[in-house]
């Protein structure tokens, strides 16, 4: 009984944008919405298995996110999947550029999607971009 279809496209690698996208995905998903996340461009490399890369802050709030007890964005994306049945798709183009295979990514991600698939899925959804 999904309330709304929400499609979130994340292209930025900045901490604030990843954080906001993860908050929308997790809260959206646990509130009964059908949430799809599409990770592309600079957002994808954080989801490579064992990635220890830290997302750079754009400004003051991004710095504070790291200093205070704010749930990390990857934890929120994972909770979106585990608690709210969100689906997170890596972009196949970004995977090609990174030379990554599906097995190289965190296990809570789905199989890669191309842009055509994302566009079809997003056609009747709210679309949020970060």
């Amino acid at each position: 009984m999904a309330l709304n279809k929400i499609s979130i496209i994340v292209v930025s690698g900045s901490r604030e944008r990843l954080q906001m996208a993860a908050m929308m995905a997790s809260v959206g998903a646990v509130s009964g919405n059908d949430v799809t996340v599409f990770l592309s461009m600079n957002a994808l490399s954080y989801f490579l298995k064992d990635s220890s890369e830290t997302a750079p802050a754009e400004g003051q709030v991004g710095v504070m996110i790291a200093e205070k007890n704010v749930p990390p964005f990857k934890q929120l994306f994972q909770q979106a999947v585990e608690l709210g049945d969100a689906k997170i798709y890596p972009c196949s183009m970004a995977m090609d550029l990174l030379g990554a295979e599906a097995d190289d990514l965190d296990p809570y991600l789905q199989e890669p999607w191309g842009l055509t698939k994302f566009l079809s899925h997003a056609a009747d959804a709210q679309v949020w971009s970060f």
């Binding site: 908050m23 809260v27 646990v30 007890n69 929120l76």
Partner: peptide, 17 residues
Amino acid sequence: RGSFCPGPLMELIAKLK
């Protein structure tokens, strides 16, 4: 306590489930 939004909500939902 000490956790920021949406940490407390997500903790509640995990336990509720």
